[in-house]
Structures are given as C-alpha cells and as structure tokens.
Amino acid sequence: MSEWTGDDFLDPIREALRLVIDPELGYNIVDLGLVYEIDVDDGRIAHVTMTTTTRGCPATDYLRSGAHQAAASVTGIASADVTMTYDPPWTPRMMSPQAKEHFGIADD
C-alpha cells in the first residue's frame, strides 16, 4: 500500500459526517459548523471534536454516536473517537455559506 497521511482521510470523513443531521435544524452537522476538528492518528483512529447547537441538547448522545458511526464507516479508518466540547460555544456564524443561505442568514 502506498504511503498515506491523516489528511488523506479528512475529506472522506467530512463527507461521511454529512450523513449526520441536526434533527432540529434538519441540516448536516458539517455545514452547520458543529464539527470543530477532524484528525486521524497513526493508528488510523479518527478523532472528531464537535459540539451541539445548545448545551444540554437532548440529541447530544445521538449526535455523538451518529458521528462515531459515520467516521468509523470510512474505508481505511480503524475506529473513531468523538469528543463533545462547548468551548467555544456554537453560533450560527460558524455555518458554511451554503447553510447560511439555506437559513436566510447574512454571510458576514
């Protein structure tokens, strides 16, 4: 197998995470800006750091589990580890331009 770096997996993982939607907003967690960081270590373990739109969101466990499922399903990834953080807290400004357009939010 050719040499690989963790960066090779970032786009496929990001794409897989788009399968996970925030149920309330009905939009994928990547474009909502809920995924803060993706990293793949030498053991091919994907480390995803993410948040929810509000602290204590009842969907938190499901979002964490869904992100874990999606990241671990990427070909070549051995397993996934998802960390929830509220630092910094999510704001709608973190959305992608497409998501902002979808929700009618001015792109600043």
Partner: peptide, 8 residues
C-alpha cells in the same frame, strides 16, 4: 431516528 443517525 436518533439510534440510526450516521448509519442511514
């Protein structure tokens, strides 16, 4: 749908 999030 929570339990199948990320799978489908």
């Amino acid at each position: 749908y929570g339990p199948v999030l990320g799978k489908t």
